[in-house]
Design a protein around this nucleic acid. Structure first.
Lengths: 355, 355
DNA sequence: TGTTAGCAGTCAATCGATGAGAGTGCTAAA
DNA sequence: TTTAGCACTCTCATCGATTGACTGCTAACA
């Protein structure tokens, strides 16, 4: 919609955002001139800035101040980065190496992996980071096992393609001889085997009503276990480095800090907030007003295994964040994570425990 | 050590702390006089204040300011409350009723109970609260079960007096015929049956070395499961209302807020910090310097079932906190919690699940 | 037409002075 | 021992002046 900018305007706009990102202070014409455009005078830069201001890219906090980038300026800047794929250079080889190493050393539980990933991203970027694990939805049930215990109790074991899912001791009211247990097992397997967890949310037991009777109690228990599992494991959000945001002057006051922290710790809200870009490879949102988190930029990446989205990771920071670095880190994690998940698929069962 | 204070000094000291708690401002002699001691003049109060200052109970921020309580003044105040058991009156009947109701409606998992308790305490007091669940240590193993799965795998089930503890699928390298599984089961039960989890931390496998051989792989796995469980479930800390502290002027600056929040979110550190008063019925700590949390008071209560400590709950707030209310709430929770836990002991197995 | 130098104008931030207000300590008298 | 009265101290808010950082404008120049 807006006309193409002249090369010099582009250069100036880029310079301005660059400077503002690193200093956080309004940028003056002479700053830009001396550091990015020594071949012209500051007066020239000034007139270009006037033009850019008229186009809505930048603004002045007050008459005698420098310029500050607006949303469109950041967008321009980020597009520039993505296209020129400068994100590669944003990370030194040492950084790349370190991130890889740190991540490859821990792959126990899915939850731990999310946590580890979030921690690494936060450490590498110095911003608040988050991970959302959505792998639970793609789990498929392979086998349901009933294991009798002492005293008319039994354990339900649900084996899935990704490992063991849930266990729970249930009471069996009638006489729980082995024949009864076997029949129950068969029924459960006939119903649940091969289903994935997503289907279960609107599973209707009415169709198989006749089959179930006699095992209603057990059946209901199992269905409940699965549903509880799904609801407690979908949109599992992990946040790391929440306090890092408070280091940036934008959030260096208690009011904003409190607001930010309360948004960040409401994990349901976070999941909601991020669901829009759930499957976008790399999304950059800058200063949406309706976020609850104003004055923020959110960069998210979708993580895939075998083409399916299994999670989302991202960074939330001030609008003037180091996009080059953040995008670089997220893309590196994307690569690393796919590798790890692919190769560890069969070990997901390991290290789980519950009480 | 310090001589007994005169009645009037006590009255004045109590008044001063009372006023300071409710306003947060240095208290002047005339404030005390008009609201608590109309029978004397402010000059009299002033001379008493001088004396109390000399005794180290209070101080002036600067020459022309009112007085502010010091640590000893709070101690005096809190002792006064506990002795006169005024904490009863601190809660209205409606509040008492509401707290009871809220707590009795949810008793699923131990973790949920901790969380619920913390939330209720925080809501009722308007301070940051925490719960530490130590019940895991008292769990006793009743039975270890090995359940074979397809493809040379097996599930380890550990049944305890408090419900199911852990499951995990392990690979069995050799030929896992049912005889082998049975022998392994027997061995595991011989070793672990009747033990409680606390013993396992420094469990030495050397003594039964000869018995184990042939089952070393399985044995090690099971031991690992138990240890992982113990380490991840001991000192399980839940914090609620962390941001509430930021509402109080003492923590209304980013630096202190950040410090406080980082202490609060380091759960291991919290457990450490609170371990001293782990078994004290009701402990009040005021402004310990070595806490990491200065300018803070911490009130904790130990929760017991059958005389054993199963957890700790408490409140962390500014030194000038509403001790009457806090102590009242904690004692009410103490009563309520014991009741609930006692009556629900046999249901702890319910509602658990894992992935 | 685009660029530049120079200059006046604007605004925020800082510093010091000033005055009001709050509260105490002291003293002398009851 | 208590009290009234008063001088003293210290904080806090306000005001004005000064400084410094930029810009916008204008007129000259390539």
């Amino acid at each position: 919609m807006s006309k193409e900018l002249s090369e010099r305007k582009k250069k100036i706009l880029h310079a301005l955002v660059d400077l503002y990102i690193s200093t956080g202070q309004p940028v003056s014409s002479s700053d830009i001139q001396s550091k990015y455009l020594p071949e012209v005078s500051s007066a020239t830069v000034r007139s270009e800035l006037s033009a850019l201001e008229a186009l809505g890219y930048i603004e002045q906090p007050h008459t005698s101040a420098g310029r500050v980038p607006l949303k469109d300026a950041y967008k321009f800047y980020v597009d520039n980065i993505s296209n020129s794929s400068q994100s590669q250079n944003a990370l030194t080889d040492r950084e790349t190496e370190m991130i890889r190493d740190r991540f490859l050393t821990r792959l126990e539980r899915i939850e731990d992996m999310s946590k580890a990933a979030a921690k690494i991203i936060s450490d590498a970027t110095n911003y608040t980071s988050f991970c959302i694990d959505k792998s639970a939805l793609n789990i498929e049930i392979e086998e349901v096992k009933l294991v009798p215990l002492k005293g008319n109790k039994a354990v339900v074991l649900i084996v899935t393609d990704k490992g063991m899912l849930a266990n729970k001791a249930i009471d069996i009211s009638g006489d729980a001889d082995s024949e009864y247990i076997d029949s129950a097992s068969m029924l459960l397997n006939r119903v649940f085997q091969g289903r994935n967890l997503q289907e279960l949310e609107n599973f209707d037991a009415a169709e198989i009503e006749t089959e179930i009777k006699g095992f209603r109690e057990i059946f209901d228990e199992v269905l409940k276990i699965l549903r509880v599992y799904v609801s407690s494991h979908t949109d599992n959000v992990v946040v790391e480095g929440a306090l890092k945001m408070l280091d940036y002057p934008e959030y260096n006051n208690v009011e904003d800090a409190k607001n930010f922290l309360s948004v960040i710790s409401d994990h349901d809200g976070m999941a909601q907030l991020l669901s829009d870009d759930g499957s976008i490879e790399l999304s950059v949102r800058i200063g949406k007003e309706d976020n609850g988190v104003e004055k923020c930029a959110i960069v998210t990446a979708a993580y895939k295994v075998d083409g399916e989205v299994v999670g989302q990771a991202g960074v939330i920071g001030p609008e003037r964040m180091d996009y080059k670095k953040v995008i670089g880190v997220l893309e590196l994690m994307k690569k690393t994570m796919s590798t790890v998940v692919d190769s560890s698929k069969n070990h997901l069962t390991d290290g789980r425990h519950e009480d």
